[in-house]
């Protein structure tokens, strides 16, 4: 870990100034990913600004007239997951958060930090290896390497890494909005699916934040998914492991007919992957296993597996069906 200056401030404008003045400055939330990467010498910030005290990042907004819920950027994952309003209205988000990492890490990690965590690709983590995300132009170690954990959708010849978050998969399916603030207090809202990027030619950029911008909150619009949603995670061991495949599946049913549906997948792409092909197929259809199977097959037809992750196509298909079945079953195990 390289030496760095540590500072703490309540003033978000001050933070934006620091971030603009010093491209090697980073915000420190729970530290669960950033400190890990700093010890690996992957991240080498010269300045850390603690986010815990920043005014605009901890505002808890009252429930809005539209029924949307706003979760502050610095709130801990565990608190958000256990917020009674989240559990009741967006149970899939609670499940997604609780499927990630461990109880200790969820007590530390912030919501904003969860969005900004970086890939767990081993080639990204090992500074002896080439990685375009860590060191643009050095090549992609995973492309022809051990890529069992890597992307099957949306990858480029520069990067095949996947985004590691579970929480973000649920947020993508919930059409959340990322609230950000830049220099001079300038605010904007980014639809969740536009927040993270596909790697393209610039895999070093994980998201669409501009210099000096920080996440202040995440807004989740009201929906009628609570009855019929589920977050499914498949992994190499029973707990405390990143997803091989995960699925956030939510639907609104009227007499078993799907009037609204939203599906996102984790472990498959550089960003949470909205399964829009499957969604399109299912809309206005009956919530039946047969329909779920067709939708899943249609979605997975677009997959482009690498040498070691062909299994993800089959696993993804089955995970989509299972998650949809369980969502249709009131979230209960089938």
């Amino acid at each position: 870990m390289r030496p760095f200056k540590f500072s703490t401030t309540a003033d978000s404008n001050e933070v934006s100034k620091i971030l603009i003045a010093n491209p090697h400055a980073r915000l420190l939330g729970g530290g669960t990913n950033l400190l890990d990467l700093m010890k690996e010498d992957v991240e080498r910030p010269t300045e850390l600004v603690e986010v815990g005290n920043i005014d605009v990042m901890k505002i808890v907004s009252p429930a809005s007239a539209t029924g949307s819920v706003v979760i502050p950027a610095v709130e801990k994952n565990a608190r958000t997951a256990n917020d009674p309003a989240i559990r009741e209205n967006f149970p899939m988000l609670s499940q997604a958060i609780l499927s990630g990492a461990s109880a200790q890490i969820r007590n530390m990690a912030t919501n904003g930090g969860n969005l900004n965590q970086r890939t767990r690709c081993t080639y990204f983590y090992d500074v002896a290896m080439p990685c375009n995300k860590r060191e643009p132009g050095s090549g992609c170690g995973a492309m022809k390497g051990l890529n069992r954990m890597h992307a099957i959708f949306g990858w480029s010849d520069k990067c095949v890494a996947v985004h590691p978050s579970d929480m973000c998969v649920a947020l993508a399916a919930l059409d959340a909005v990322v609230k950000v603030q830049g220099a001079n207090g300038k605010q904007r809202s980014i639809p969740f699916t536009a927040y993270h990027r596909l790697p393209g030619d610039q895999p070093q950029k994980d998201n669409t934040l501009q210099p000096g911008e920080l996440i202040t909150a995440i807004e989740i619009p009201r929906n009628n998914f609570a009855e019929n949603s589920y977050y499914l995670k498949v992994r190499d061991r029973a707990s405390y492991a990143f997803a091989l495949i995960s699925v956030a599946a939510a639907m609104e049913l009227k007499n078993n007919k799907i009037v609204r549906v939203s599906i996102a997948m984790g472990g498959v792409a550089h960003k949470p992957w909205r399964a829009s092909v499957a969604e399109k197929y299912l809309l206005h259809k009956e919530a039946t296993e047969a329909n779920f199977k067709i939708a899943a097959a249609n979605e997975m037809k677009l997959a482009k597996p690498l040498e070691h992750n062909l299994y993800k196509v089959e696993l993804g298909r089955k995970a989509l069906v299972r998650a949809l079945m369980q969502a249709a079953n009131g979230g209960k195990t089938i």
Binding site: R120, T122, Y123, Y125, D126, G145, L146, M149, D236, R237, A238, S239, Y240, A241, F242
Partner: peptide, 15 residues
Amino acid sequence: ATRTLADYHVPVNLD
């Protein structure tokens, strides 16, 4: 390529 306990998996309690 399995460098740490994050990718060299050993059993956790739930296993």
